[in-house]
Write a protein that binds this DNA or RNA. Structure first.
Lengths: 196, 196
DNA sequence: GTCTATAGGCAGATAGAC
DNA sequence: GTCTATCTGCCTATAGAC
């Protein structure tokens, strides 16, 4: 029996399934991929997939939860590494740009489009992702206003929502054009208004 | 033989198919609905649908083209009815809000998410929709700058792209929350920066 | 953990009668 | 124009052997 390296460790195969599923959802959408797609990339059968994730809904939920956790970790890292609010926001936008560079949509932006067709547990997880993002941006904006580096016309909450939805929209539109500069320009336009 | 009321008139049934298909795509996505869904709403068989539209790809293309034409007509109407650039932009955002009020995503915003899975003719039509929107907003911004009612930090083209993608993102995120105010606040935040 | 085999359903699509 | 009937293929999922 191996000593586990850390808490709540997913199996090797489960991790590979999540990696492939994540990419497929971000590129094709939850309704645009199948267990067979994942299985063929792993050179396995769909039956084996069902051993690791009982159904597509459970796989979907696991995908969102891992993605959200990774995102939150990245936000923590930004908080630890970068002092000023404006630079934190730039780093935040760079996270999105990194996703787009892989020709992917934000996982939860994609699932927001498909929201009406998602099983309930997935819906809740999508909302939790957006809530967490807005809360982090709102905190950064509030701190920045306090420190005098951020100018807010209205509430920090409204500005945070504008930034999050604006970045999601910039990804959504840039991807069909395959044009990263489109995203960067929009992100800069979104954020520049809040710098003081 | 009936005298046709206008050029390029679609048949009654074809129009009903387009109406239902349009709603289904805006709510569930192109990969989230089937010919059977449309047929059941019309109390018809899928075979009859194939008489009007040879395949799902052709139906999809017709949906985008009709939607784009309607949108362009609405933009013409705004140009004719509303004088100032800032008010034109407000009316433009109100178009999006009207779509969202029906608990729908913008047809082409939805299809932008599913872009990688779309047949080529549909891809081209999605791009044409976005191009046309950006061109109209850019023209309004340029005219407004000329007239002194619009302030632009950079190019009118960049600002137009920011506005279009920002409104699409605001719809994308507001819909899962079922919260129209979320969209309105984001739209106001997006546009207010350009008023002088 | 992964396989074979298979179920049961739904997808888009076509042929041919009416 | 719309139907019945049917095809072929893919989908999610399960049973049971290894």
């Amino acid at each position: 029996m191996m000593a586990s390296k850390q808490r709540s460790e997913a199996g090797e195969t489960a991790t590979r399934i999540l990696d492939i599923g994540e990419r497929l959802v971000q590129v094709r959408g939850f309704n645009g991929f199948s267990y067979a797609d994942v299985a063929s990339e792993l050179a396995m059968t769909t039956a084996a997939l069902h051993y690791h994730f009982p159904g597509k809904a459970e796989l979907g939920r696991a995908l969102i939860e891992r993605y959200t956790q990774r995102f939150l970790d990245a936000l923590e890292e930004i908080d630890a590494r970068i002092p000023g609010a404006p630079d934190k926001l730039d780093a935040y936008a760079a996270l999105y740009a990194g996703v787009l560079r892989g020709q992917r949509m934000c996982l939860c932006g994609m699932l927001a489009a498909e929201y009406q067709t998602l099983p309930d547990p997935m819906r809740d997880a999508v909302i939790a992702f957006i809530d967490a993002n807005e809360a982090w941006v709102e905190r950064v904006l509030s701190d920045g206003r306090q420190a005098g580096s951020i100018a807010l016309p209205g509430s920090a909450s409204d500005a945070a929502r504008l930034i999050v939805s604006g970045l999601e929209g910039a990804m959504l539109v840039a991807r069909p054009y395959g044009d990263l500069a489109r995203f960067d320009t929009a992100a800069e336009g979104l954020l520049s208004g809040f710098r003081r």
